[in-house]
Design a binder for these strands. Structure first.
Lengths: 237, 237
DNA sequence: GCTCTATGAATGAATG
DNA sequence: CATTCATTCATAGAGC
């Protein structure tokens, strides 16, 4: 990465921040336009299928949309700056959200490269899973799995097996992580005299000891993602 | 190294993260129905300027916001993937839902502790690993891993996880190499050389509607660029 | 410096 | 559950 690009990025982010602040204001209006259900007292819908709201509320909605639009624009801009050299660019076409459902991969020369086969939790699903994971001890029962699956299916393709596997893996890896963590805890107490490089001229040798700490390491992987920058490969959402 | 530069960016993004949490509240409505917000009185009040709109119109607004919100989330994820340094990650967490997220590793005053660095075996370590790899068939037991780690630590920073991963990868790739080699023998006779991206025989994706809100999934495809649904995990403190 | 590749690491799924 | 396998993601370095 070049120096210039970094500078640019920082700038973009700062601007983004500005917009977000506006959103906070919006949010303080405590309007819930997103709410799909006609909650009691939330929206006043009369018999004619007509909904009544104040100018102020409408204005809030509009502002929120504007903020999001602006946000998206800037995020896209940011992305383009980041990938300015050789990667693909994003485009936000007009205010209208077009329906470009085409997957570039699929449309290229009929060469179908398949999308991934294995399930990948969406951000939302993952959040929910993590929450449940913290709440519950042990692997959820069969019934519980069903419920969770049901809930998660609202946010993307998922099966009970996925959920089951996820909990199995999550538990196992959480456990192992702890074990290793405890291990390094002991190691840190005993200062090993030979831990440093008695071994010489390897330039890479200087490393922050922190990266060896499993606790930290796991947390470093905050949000993984599957974004393939090389070859411009794409797959579905 | 470029630690300072990363640090700078961390500052900006950490703040942005905070704002993003707020941004997300829209989406949370469907996910966390049990979370009660103070909705009463907000939309019913019509003192003075009263706005009347149909359900349809309202729905349009809602959708638009939802689309943008989702877009933003996706964009943020893309950003994370592009700037994959761990502490540059933006995070969208259900902050308003009692899921109080705080990154213990990152003081929001902007001082990062460490960046992720991946382990790189030294020449000596590699030689030892290769030797052991040839000696042993299959995966070394945990005990064995410990021993190896211990030995290798004489020659540089290393953790058991590193060793474990190394063997996993080494074995997997050795295997794959053989398979590909055998395959290409047959291939060369009949067909032109295949790229190594050519695997994954399963044709069409069955996870098209994999993103959270089904009604807006198609619109998310408006992004002409390459990205796909992400997987990832939230730090568990 | 920009791209490409080898490879460390993460993780869904499978197996015992 | 404990391990292992398979696949993919991300990146440090090599090469142009």
């Amino acid at each position: 990465m070049s120096q210039e690009k970094k500078c640019t990025r920082t700038l973009d982010i700062s601007e983004l921040k500005t917009e977000m602040v506006i959103m906070e204001w919006d949010q303080q209006q405590d309007i819930q336009p997103q709410n799909q259900r006609e909650e009691n007292g939330n929206l006043n819908v009369n018999n004619g299928g007509v909904m009544v709201m104040t100018d102020e509320q409408l204005e809030t909605l509009r502002k929120q949309i504007a903020v999001y639009a602006s946000l998206c624009e800037q995020l896209v801009q940011m992305h383009n700056n980041l990938t300015a050299q050789s990667h693909q660019h994003l485009t936000l076409t007009g205010g209208r959200l077009g329906n470009l459902y085409s997957d570039p991969l699929m449309t290229h020369s009929g060469h179908k490269i398949s999308a991934r086969q294995r399930w990948t939790p969406t951000a939302v699903q993952l959040r929910i899973l993590e929450r449940i994971f913290d709440e519950v001890t042990g692997t959820p029962s069969k019934q519980k799995i069903k419920e969770i699956t049901s809930e998660l299916s609202q946010h993307g393709q998922i099966s009970e097996t996925n959920v089951y596997n996820w909990f199995q893996n999550r538990r196992a890896r959480s456990k192992r992580k702890q074990a290793v963590a405890a291990e390094s805890e002991v190691e840190t107490e005993v200062e090993s005299p030979k831990t440093k490089q008695d071994n010489l001229p390897v330039p890479q040798a200087k490393q922050d000891a922190c990266f060896q700490n499993p606790q930290i390491t796991s947390q470093l992987h905050l949000l993984g993602g599957s974004y393939r920058s090389t070859h411009g490969r794409v797959s579905e959402i």
